[in-house]
C-alpha cells in the first residue's frame, strides 16, 4: 500500500484532519471519513455533477479530485448551507419553487447556483441554464430548478420573493 498522507481541510467553517491514502477521492473522504453524506455520487464518468462541492468558492466535481488535493483549502458542501437553523435563499428557492423531486441532484444544483449568485446576483435565464449545465437532473425537467434560482436571486437582491407555484408550497 502506498504511504498515507495528511489531509487538513476546512469544511463549512470547521477544520478536519485525517490520514488517508493518496488515491482516496475527495467525495469518498467527505462521505466515508467525515460522515458527510450530503455530497452524492451519481456516476463513474465525471458527468453528473451530483458530487459538486465548492473549493474556495469554485464548483468542482469531488469525484474527480483526490482528497489530498483539497489539503489546505476551504470547502463548502450542502451541509454548510443555511444559517441559524433556517434556510438560506437558495434552499428556500428550491423549497418554494419545487426545485426537486427525488433530491439526488439537489446538493450539486444548489452549490453551483450559490457560486453563480455570488458572482452574478441578477442572472438571466440563459445564464442560469448555462451555470447548471454540468449538473444532471433526471426528475424535474430543469424548469423548476431555474425558477428556484430566480427566486433565490430575487430574495438576495430585494430581501423578499414570491413563489410562482399556485396555492403556495406546503
Amino acid at each position: 500500500m502506498a504511504e498515507t498522507v495528511t489531509v487538513k481541510v476546512t469544511v463549512n467553517g470547521v477544520e478536519h484532519e485525517a490520514r488517508v491514502e493518496p488515491r482516496m477521492l475527495l467525495v469518498h473522504f467527505l462521505r466515508d471519513e467525515l460522515d458527510m453524506t450530503g455530497t452524492h455520487i451519481g456516476c463513474d464518468t465525471t458527468n453528473c455533477g451530483a458530487c459538486t462541492v465548492l473549493v474556495d468558492g469554485v464548483p468542482m466535481k469531488s469525484c474527480t479530485m483526490f482528497a489530498v488535493q483539497a489539503d489546505g483549502h476551504d470547502l463548502t458542501t450542502v451541509e454548510g448551507l443555511g444559517d441559524n437553523g433556517g434556510l438560506e435563499p437558495i434552499q428556500e428557492g428550491f423549497h418554494q419553487e419545487h426545485g426537486l423531486q427525488c433530491g439526488f441532484c439537489t446538493p450539486g444544483m444548489m452549490l453551483v447556483s450559490k457560486a453563480l449568485l455570488a458572482e452574478n446576483p441578477d442572472p438571466s435565464e440563459a445564464e442560469i441554464r448555462r451555470a447548471i449545465s454540468g449538473n444532471l437532473c433526471r426528475c424535474t425537467g430543469y424548469q423548476n430548478i431555474v425558477k428556484s434560482v430566480q427566486y433565490a436571486a430575487k430574495k438576495i437582491r430585494t430581501g423578499s420573493a414570491e413563489s410562482t407555484v399556485g396555492g403556495g408550497a406546503s
Binding site: G49, T52, P59, M60, K61, V112, R130, S133, G134, N135
Partner: peptide, 9 residues
C-alpha cells in the same frame, strides 16, 4: 469544452 464545472479544473 466539457461543462462549466469540468472547465473550472
Amino acid at each position: 469544452i466539457a461543462d462549466p464545472i469540468v472547465r473550472n479544473r
